[in-house]
Simulated scan of single mutants.
Amino acid sequence: MRALWVYLAISLGLSWLVALPLWLGDGLETPRFTLVALAMMCTPALAAFVVVRFVERRPLARSLGLVPVRPWGRFFAWMGLAFLVPLLLVAAALVVAAAFGLYTTDLTGFSGLQETIDAQFAALGVTEELEFPIEVLVVAQLANIVVGSVINLVPALGEEIGWRGWLLPRLTDRYGVLVAVLLSGVIWGVWHAPLVLLGYNYPDASPLVALATMVGFCTVTGAVFSWLRIRSGNVWAPALAHGSLNAAAGMHVLFGAAGTSVDTTQATILGWSGWIVPLVLVAVLAATGQFRPRPAVVPPTSQVSTDAA
């Protein structure tokens, strides 16, 4: 229990300390916002490292979920799922939001994207129009999501080593899988408070509504990440899923209609309507026993004796 409290104190305390320049400066408009956000993403991993090294005194790689990764075929299969599932959930969230009338699409002219580009050009003092079809830019942005997912894996590890690498197994040992999945998601959401209370992700909501919605979002998506952690046996799959989700989260900009706005407390994967499909997925996974730890992979006897020789 001591290790858990030390971890929470370090991870939550450091998140506020790292974000302090935003509160003392111009908030999310602070020029170094991206740097601050990236540094904040490292705090859960740092907290986990300190706890494992100085409190638990256990082997780092296994305690943080960095191993095992073999057999390689299984590892890459889970990594493929980790990349694909968040993209499908983000896309499904837009379909659901559109069905509820919370999101207006333009899938032919992509007028919302054109409006966004025009506004960005105007802010830069550029008056020229795009010299290529808007559809080309849409395709390029979708391709960029693939690249961004891989790049985002690195900072996402900073969070996932803490949340799913260290925290989830410790909570599972103490409270069982169900409570561990829910509690780790809530803690993950609360950890975002230094940014969310400044308007991050939910710029049009009151601070308390924004934080409550962020906790809901993290609990739902965290359950999916927890499934990947439990079944893959390591932290790499949830880290890639985290990176994939971050890369695809702005997908609504590509397909929205001009002159409309999106309330992220209600629409996109961040809002309540976007949680419906992930909740159904989690329910199906739970009903089919997919939150049970994967069976250990034991090499054949002949292989064991050969290695020993």
Score class of each variant (00 low, 15 high):
259 G>P: 08
100 F>A: 13
268 T>I: 06
28 L>M: 08
45 A>Q: 05
303 Q>K: 09
258 A>S: 13
119 A>Y: 07
84 L>S: 04
187 I>F: 00
62 R>I: 15
140 A>M: 15
163 W>Q: 00
210 A>Q: 01
227 W>H: 07
196 V>L: 00
259 G>D: 04
108 T>K: 12
211 L>P: 03
119 A>L: 06
176 G>M: 00
230 I>E: 08
48 A>G: 05
193 A>L: 07
228 L>Y: 05
275 W>Y: 10
196 V>A: 02
171 L>Y: 07
108 T>V: 14
214 M>C: 15
146 V>R: 07
109 G>L: 01
227 W>G: 00
23 W>L: 07
221 T>V: 13
200 Y>E: 15
59 P>S: 12
137 L>F: 14
172 T>A: 09
16 W>H: 10
150 V>H: 15
237 A>N: 01
261 S>D: 15
9 A>G: 13
183 L>Q: 05
155 P>W: 09
83 F>T: 02
296 A>D: 14
93 A>R: 06
111 S>W: 00
271 G>V: 06
258 A>P: 11
181 V>D: 02
59 P>G: 14
10 I>T: 03
174 R>A: 13
125 G>T: 12
184 S>E: 08
122 A>Q: 12
60 L>D: 12
73 G>M: 09
293 P>N: 11
255 F>E: 12
298 V>G: 09
24 L>S: 12
65 G>K: 03
134 I>P: 02
2 R>I: 13
281 L>V: 15
193 A>K: 03
304 V>I: 15
114 Q>N: 10
250 G>P: 12
201 N>R: 08
221 T>E: 00
293 P>W: 12
24 L>C: 08
307 D>F: 13
12 L>W: 11
202 Y>M: 06
173 D>Y: 07
70 R>P: 10
29 E>T: 11
14 L>H: 04
92 A>T: 01
78 W>T: 05
166 W>Q: 05
138 V>T: 09
201 N>P: 06
90 V>N: 00
60 L>S: 14
205 A>L: 07
294 R>Q: 12
210 A>M: 02
12 L>T: 12
198 L>I: 10
